[in-house]
């Protein structure tokens, strides 16, 4: 009961689906996004967490802690591991140094396919610079 045509067609479809990511990208060289630092950030040299890799991976967890601390405990002061003091604020602190949101946050998020809903409420460009 072996229907040659059906089986071969099925196998071709199967291999096509499995290898979809390979031919979707067509073996192009796809460069990772280069995020730009503003002058203000360059001056500061360090982010809120001095470890850049930690910042790349854990900034959303930090923001979650900030949000909880401000909204639930009313405490707006954050002392970083480097001893510096920051105001815990998404728009006023993060976007103070990273005021180039489109070239910084958004660029990386687009690459990683995340779309934070924060900007429904928070001002996303208090003083945007390019």
């Amino acid at each position: 009961m072996f229907n040659k045509k059906l089986v071969i067609a099925g196998l071709i479809i199967f291999v096509g689906i499995i290898t979809f990511p390979f031919w979707f990208n067509q073996a192009k060289v796809i460069a990772p996004p280069e995020v730009k630092l503003t002058e203000r950030a360059k001056e500061a040299k360090e982010c809120v967490l001095p470890d850049k890799l930690k910042m790349r991976g854990e900034h959303m967890q930090l923001l979650d802690v900030w949000r909880g601390t401000v909204v639930r405990e009313g405490n707006r002061k954050y002392v970083g591991t480097n001893g510096k003091e920051y105001e815990m604020s998404l728009s006023n602190t993060c976007l103070d140094c990273h005021s180039n949101k489109a070239d910084f946050c958004d660029k990386c998020h687009e690459y990683a396919s995340v779309d934070p809903y924060c900007w429904d409420c928070h001002i996303d460009n208090p003083k945007e610079t390019k």
Partner: peptide
């Protein structure tokens, strides 16, 4: 947490 952008590279 891991560096997702690096993993995507």
């Amino acid at each position: 947490r891991v560096d997702i952008a690096g993993i995507k590279e």
